[in-house]
């Protein structure tokens, strides 16, 4: 089992992975910024900071995974997280995330959860 930290602002990720080490944030951008802090402290980014096709200004949720162990600064992780922060700014510039209905928010939470779970399973963890 790979020791990981999940950074998230998604309530259903928090609920599902409550037994793991979680760092919760208010917004998706705050998740990215906090992740960058950890990367600077030597934690390694484990999933890509951008979602597959759901755009940064569409979904208000983001969950990222970093290694629990802090070692040397990983420049690939840093480059990816910095790049993602720039992309978020680019998308927000044209349009901020709309005020979604509860149903749409729930769907975005689910998509974000499936991305985390897909990654978590890929590390050889069970659920």
């Amino acid at each position: 089992m790979k020791p990981i930290i999940i950074l998230t602002n998604n309530p259903i990720v928090i609920k599902k992975y409550q037994k793991l080490q979680l760092i919760t944030q208010g917004t998706a951008v705050e998740v990215l910024l906090k992740t960058r802090d950890l990367v600077h402290l030597g934690h390694k980014l484990l999933n890509h900071p951008l979602a597959g096709s759901v755009k940064p200004n569409e979904t208000p949720y983001r969950s990222l995974m970093v290694s629990q162990n802090a070692e040397q600064l990983d420049y690939t992780s840093l480059s990816l997280i910095e790049g993602a922060i720039q992309i978020y700014a680019q998308f927000y510039r044209d349009h901020p995330t709309p005020e979604w209905t509860e149903k749409v928010l729930q769907d975005f939470q689910l998509i974000d959860l499936t991305l985390v779970t897909s990654g978590y399973q890929s590390f050889g963890n069970l659920s």
Binding site: L46, N47, H48, G52, T76, L115, S118, G119, S122, F123
Partner: peptide, 9 residues
């Protein structure tokens, strides 16, 4: 494929 984790990529 185009998977989620960096290790998969």
């Amino acid at each position: 494929n185009e998977n989620v984790t960096l290790a998969d990529k």
